[in-house]
């Protein structure tokens, strides 16, 4: 297993659209394992392949405090069950240090493949629903900062650019 580099906003590679996985094979399982390890180490509760510069539709999630309930979603999609929007303070491993309120539908129906290529179909609500939507956004080149006001987004960008410059 290996830790992967997590891209940070405003890295343009976060804007790339991920391609569907055509075959769930050993390479995809290794990617998912490395993503889980990277996510746990960060630490985070969700990570999309786009964030580690792999343009494939793979997402890993683990909401448990004990880090023992990993969920691997391949080619995930969702449909809104309850269009009522809920607010949630979101953060993102690609936007380190910033937490902002984002509104999203609160109940969704999710379909995806698991790490063995088996079809999954389930309902999600609350934090899980938020997290899945946040990660699927990544696969489409979208970030939670896109939901914020221009002013807020610019401020976050400038702070991160400054941080990157001082690391360089």
């Amino acid at each position: 297993m290996a830790l992967l580099e997590i891209l940070e906003f405003p890295d343009p590679r976060l804007r790339k659209k991920a391609a569907p996985v055509t075959e769930v094979n050993e390479a995809i399982r290794t990617l998912a394992d490395n993503m889980l390890e990277t996510m746990y180490a960060a630490p985070g509760i969700g990570l999309a392949a786009t964030q580690v510069n792999v343009q494939k539709r793979v997402v890993v999630i683990d909401l448990s405090e004990e880090k023992n309930a990993p969920l691997v979603l391949i080619n995930p999609e969702f449909a809104v069950i309850d269009p009522e929007q809920h607010e949630y303070q979101e953060g993102c491993l690609s936007v380190p240090g910033f937490y902002e309120t984002v509104c999203r539908p609160q109940r969704i129906r999710v379909s995806a493949l698991d790490r063995h290529g088996k079809a999954l179909d389930f309902e999600a609500e609350g934090l899980l629903a938020v997290c899945i939507q946040h990660e699927i956004d990544h696969l489409d080149g979208k970030l939670f900062v896109d939901y914020l006001s221009t002013l807020k987004r610019q401020r976050i960008r400038q702070k991160l650019e400054k941080a990157h410059r001082s690391q360089a």
């Binding site: 830790l3 992967l4 580099e5 997590i6 891209l7 940070e8 906003f9 405003p10 890295d11 990277t38 180490a41 960060a42 630490p43 953060g91 491993l93 690609s94 380190p96 240090g97 937490y99 991160l160 650019e161 941080a163 990157h164 690391q167 360089a168």
Partner: peptide, 15 residues
């Protein structure tokens, strides 16, 4: 966010 952030362990850079 966790109170103590282990900066050294973060492998993230925007570069």
């Amino acid at each position: 966010p966790p109170v103590i952030r282990n900066k050294g362990a973060r492998r993230t850079t925007g570069r």
